[in-house]
């Protein structure tokens, strides 16, 4: 599942959760470019995006316990410090300082504009968030059983309507880059941010900017959720056919070819 990983993607920052996905003492189960993540907020409010794997016996940390300042593995009770990921306590060796090597891989992450952002790379500075202007309304993030490429392609055919029923004002969605798309209509802007989960899955994060609508908050959220889940149904139908058509050996399917080429393009465009 790692053929979507190239250096350009690895060094890019992606949204991997909404801020509201991380209530107190919760551990969120996320994934980016095939890498599973345990994402959690310590009691001081800081966010952590960790490799979802205990360095002791490999158990997923997303089933662990958020103790407030440490994450405790479900299996042998090892505790790992917020921030560094360093093991601070081993129940079976309570008088020994844990080895320095006993450390969870902590990815760089930060919280901004309603999202938790992370990168698998070690060097790239956090880009300016594309969301930092104007009033924001976060829509429901939707997981897709389809590649980010397929979702991005389908979004360019999506008709964005900012408000609810009987609204004839719709806009085409245009790509800004391989993982960011935008549409503007009647002073409303929608930004779509794609999180490549792995080669066959993506999460679509959506934000309305400067949305002015007489409809109430929940009505607007439901309106966009309905439209985007309809989009998902149409894409996943296509995606499922593509996947079932995936050949064992040589491949002459143009649709599948396009998928593969698209993965290559990710690196070029991102």
């Amino acid at each position: 599942m790692h053929n979507c990983r190239d250096e350009t993607l690895v060094s890019r920052w992606f949204p991997v959760a909404a801020s509201t996905d991380l209530p107190k003492r919760h551990v969120f189960h996320g994934q980016l470019l095939g890498e599973e993540l345990a994402i959690w907020r310590s009691d001081d409010g800081a966010v952590n995006a960790w490799e979802n794997r205990c360095p002791h016996r490999g158990v997923r940390l997303s089933i662990g316990t958020n103790l407030g300042n440490e994450l405790k593995c479900r299996y042998h009770g090892m505790q790992f410090a917020a921030g560094s990921g360093q093991c601070t306590f081993m129940p079976a060796h309570r008088d020994m300082p844990p080895a320095r090597a006993l450390c969870v891989k902590a990815y760089r992450c930060r919280e901004q504009d309603g999202f938790v952002w992370t990168t698998l790379g070690a060097t790239a500075a956090f880009d300016t968030s594309p969301l930092s202007e104007g009033r924001m309304k976060q829509l429901r993030s939707l997981p897709f059983n389809a590649s980010a490429l397929l979702v991005a392609e389908a979004l360019t055919r999506y008709r964005f309507s900012p408000t609810t029923e009987n609204d004839l004002a719709v806009a085409q969605v245009a790509p800004i880059d391989a993982f960011t798309l935008q549409a503007t209509v009647k002073n409303s802007v929608v930004m779509f941010l794609l999180q490549p989960v792995d080669v066959d899955r993506a999460v679509l994060h959506s934000v309305l900017l400067d949305a002015v609508s007489p409809a109430d908050h929940i009505t607007i959220l439901r309106h966009h959720n309905e439209n985007l889940t309809a989009l998902r149904r149409s894409i996943e139908g296509t995606g499922a056919r593509l996947l079932s058509a995936r050949p064992e050996g040589a491949d002459n399917s143009s649709a599948y070819r396009k998928l593969v080429d698209g993965r290559v393009q990710y690196g070029m465009a991102a």
Partner: peptide, 13 residues
């Protein structure tokens, strides 16, 4: 897997 269902995971808590 419940990875795609974050609201379910919070409700379980």
């Amino acid at each position: 897997s419940r990875q795609d269902y974050p609201a379910i995971r919070r409700w379980l808590d």
